[in-house]
Nucleic acid binder design. Structure first.
Lengths: 211, 211, 211, 211
DNA sequence: ACCTACGGGACGTCCCGTTTAT
DNA sequence: ATAAACGGGACGTCCCGTAGGT
């Protein structure tokens, strides 16, 4: 990696949390200058304009977010549902790999009106995450761990929505309570996905799970 | 109501959806001037500065949001849980009384950094909503409709987090699917809250649901 | 004259020199309030708006100007040319009946662009004055005092233009020199208008004056 | 010339006719913005405030005015009086190098009250013009073309006053008649300045000329 | 890579002419 | 007739993103 590319990368990584905290409009080049220690010209050498820098910063932040939420499942012992539990726990414990809340959520809200490029980025990030969650549910269903009537997309969407929503609440109120409440309920939901263990007769007409 | 107060109110109501869509920083006085048909002087007579106007606009928007989410429960026949079902359904069908998504969520994210006054407003809005939801759960618990081991705060937080999160997803993707998925799962969760009907013996040790 | 009409007249007379000095745009209601000792409402009771007041004030000022320049010729002993001399002298000695220079000139320049009503007023004032001057020249020509080849309109226009122009120069420089210079030359011009006295043979081919 | 200086000059040249037409008070920044195609920031970078811009614009306009009235006399064949005739004719044919009438006159009237800086500018412009005219008369007197009893200052002041006054009348009435009348009379006056040709005996005490 | 110049456009103050209530 | 309220629109400051020159 050339020196210029290193600088460019350093700018992106420095800018990412700032953009994440303040949004595209709320963040000025002045702040980025102070944070990077570069002058305007030094920044403009690497990016055509503010938007390109913002795009790269958001891309970087979202990449990090998606990564921490879908990676390292190999170390989990147990089936697909155990992995989902693990994902929930990790989200609650390390909700955001970047200062300022979840970049996916922030961007989704911030770029809701107008800024199509950023919105598209956020959408892709969410999609990727959901695909990963759905794959896990599907896997559980295939190997009989999860009930057949479970709809993977529903589970995935609810996991994302609840976790992200709870994160916003937590940040808003400055307490982890909402996140922990979400964890409690989601864990229960995940337990409810499990198929009855083999050999245990299902009591007819006795819905066990809420789902 | 004097002419000035009418104008002031008109400005607030006109500004609310604009602020809600574009956020505090993303919305310029120029837009507000065009939307209200007033000139700068006409606006600044009624508000000390942009922030005061924004505050009033957000307050108005959140008031509307909280109202549509906590009102008109009298018309629901049935117990507390039926009312919660109703609330979920109404949220899914009319997610936002103001253009541009839920003002509570938008403000929570937008004002996350810095703007303390707005953040406080959002917090209060969320609190009010949660109190109302908790009260319903509590009421259900008191009259035996809901299981005793249910924690009202957990239910309330999850309802809010999931609905709001799902709304963001829905807006991001331009489809109601995430909202409907949330409704499906939340409805199931609410069903899971119900105490076993009197006369039906509970199978000991067989609670599946964590709630 | 009713009390209201008296007040109205008082406002006009107070406003006239202010408008004359500062022009329509340069004069604010605030100044008029201070000068008249009335409040805004007290003024607005008598005039529909600022423009009506300005119109009346200008009309009054111009009336005064035209009057002092065309009146009281009865007291002059001598013919038409003597009267013209008198007019020139009076202009030089009392150039403006109203503070702030000649209202005709001021308005002609001030209202040059746009303000049609005022411009029309100024035009009429000038016309009236010129008609009076032309009538005098014509009278002199008819009774043989003035040469037949004299064109009354030319004389009138030059009298007006030179006197008004000299007044502006005098005010600009704070000295009466330009006015006195104009008087000197205009007096000579007027002398040149005179027909050769009867009995004096005209020297052929010896154009004396171009006029 | 740097880009900024070019812009500054462009602004001045664009603003000059607008100020000349509408006066200092009657001309808004909005108009200047529209005329120059710049925004407020783009204008205020080059001028401290509206007054500085006005000053420069007036200076430019007056420079142009004085220049067109004192220049290019080299091309005139003949003596000093011929040059004066030429000046009169040029004024009548091209009365103002800038839209909206003569800037000297406009400013003299507009800035009559108050605005000292502008008034001073106008005074200087008039002075320069008069000096040039006086120099011509003086030259004519020195070389015997013009009578010795002619007072240069008188001639200069009357030329200026009459031409400027006639220009105002012409603009007010929308016809060139006053200007042509002035030309006629001024030409005659100039002819009257001439000394009797050598060899022609002057009839003692019989000056017929009006001057 | 720095630094300054450049033009854009935000926000805000002030005062103006007008209307309304008293 | 007064005085306050009202809406308009002026001017001005500030800082932003961008462009060039060094």
């Amino acid at each position: 990696m050339s020196k210029g590319e290193l600088t460019r990368q350093r700018i992106i990584e420095t800018a990412a949390p700032i953009f994440n905290r303040r949004g595209y409009e709320g963040c000025s080049l002045q702040e980025l200058m102070e944070a990077t220690g570069l002058e305007k010209g030094g920044i403009y050498r690497h990016f055509e304009n503010k938007e390109e820098l913002a795009r790269e910063a958001f891309r970087y932040a979202m990449g990090r977010a998606v990564k921490t939420r879908t990676d390292n499942l190999g170390e989990v012992h147990g089936g697909a549902v155990a992995k989902l539990h693990f994902i929930v726990r990790r989200f609650v414990e390390h909700p955001s790999p970047i200062e300022g809340g979840c970049p996916l959520m922030n961007t989704a809200v911030d770029a809701d009106d107008g800024n199509t490029a950023l919105k598209e980025l956020a959408r892709e990030g969410i999609c990727m995450w959901r695909r990963r969650l759905m794959a896990l549910v599907e896997e559980g269903r295939r190997n009989g761990e999860v009930r057949q009537d479970v709809v993977p997309r529903q589970i995935a969407n609810v996991l994302i929505a609840t976790l992200e929503g709870a994160l916003v609440l937590s940040r808003l109120e400055g307490t982890k309570v909402p996140l922990r409440d979400a964890q409690k309920v989601l864990d229960a939901m995940l337990v409810g996905l499990l198929a009855a263990p083999v050999g245990v007769r299902r009591v007819v007409g006795k819905r066990r799970s809420a789902l």
